[in-house]
Nucleic acid binder design. Sequence first.
DNA 1: AACATTCCCAACCGCCCTACT
DNA 2: GAGTAGGGCGGTTGGGAATGT
Length: 301
Amino acid sequence: MNIRKMEGFKKEEIRKGPWKAEEDEVLMKHVKKYGPRDWSSIRSKGLLQRTGKSCRLRWVNKLRPNLKHGCKFSAEEERVVIDLQAEFGNKWARIATYLPGRTDNDVKNFWSSRQKRLARILQTSGTPSSSNPKPQKNKNEVPVFQDVPTLEAPVFSSSMEEESSYFDNPEQIRMMPLPSLVKTELPDGGYANLSQYEPLSTIPFPQIPQLQPDLLFSPESHELLARLDDPYFLSVLGTADTPELGGAAQFSLGPPLFDPVSGCVNSAADVANHVTPDTLFDEFPSDMFDLIEPLPSPSDW
DNA sequence: AACATTCCCAACCGCCCTACT
DNA sequence: GAGTAGGGCGGTTGGGAATGT
C-alpha cells in the first residue's frame, strides 16, 4: 500500500489546532463507548477529522478524568518532579505516574519553565555559564544522578493501559486508584485519603530516593552553591525574579500548600501567611533541595 | 496606555517500540 | 523475518495571558 499517497490524498481532511467543544464531545463519546483506544478509528469512522495521535493526546492531556486543570504545581509536586527528574532524567511520562492528575505534558512544561527561569537567573548574575548562547535548552539533558537505586514504579500510569478497563465500567472510575501524596478529590465530590482505597494497599508507593548531596550535586549545583556566598548573587536572587525572597529570613516550608478540597495548590491569598517555597525552589537546580530538607520517607506520606 | 518581556500551556512533530499481518 | 500501523513519548513551537517597564 502506498501510504504516502494515501496520506497526501487525505491530507486536506485532517484538522489541526485548538480543539472545539464539539470535538471534545465526540471524543468523549467515543472513549465512553470503546474506551481510550482505537484512536485512529475515530477518523476512519468519520467522527472527527483528527489524527489518532491528536485524539489520544487530547484525551490524555485534557479530557481524562481526575486531571488537575489550571492548578499550579504544589510545592510537594515540585519537589517530586525535581527529585524524580534527577532520578529518571527527562522521562516525563514516568515521572507523571507519580503525580496524580498530572500529565507528562504538565511535567514537561513545568520543568521547561523552571529551567528557563534558572538559566535566566544564572545569566543575570553574570556567571561563566551565562556565556552559553543557549542556556534555556538543555537538550538531551543527561540525568545528573546515575547511581541512585532504581525505584519501583507505581503500577498506575498516565498512559492508557490502566484506563482501558475502567471505562468499561464507569463505576470503576470512582474507585480508580490514584497515586497521591495527599488527599485526592473524587469525582463524586468526596475526598479520598488514598490509603483507604483497597487497590492502593497493593500498590507499592513510589519511593523517592534519599539522595546523597555529596554524591549527587551536578556541576550546575556546585556552581550555584559556591555562589551563594556571593552577596551579589544572593541579591540577584532576591530581587530579579523573586522579590518575596526578601523575607527569606522568615522562610519556612510550612505545611503543604496543597488544598485537599480543590486538589490544587492554594491561592496566593491562602498562602500569604507563610512564604511559599515554590518560588524559591524554582531558582535552584534540582539537587539543591537535598541540602535544604531530606524528603520524608514514603511511610510518612 | 503602549510596548516588551516572561510565563504558561496546548498542540504538533518526529522518533521509537510493539503488535499484527 | 519484513513491512506496516498504531500508539507512546520526548522535544519543540506558537499563541495568549500576565507582568514589568
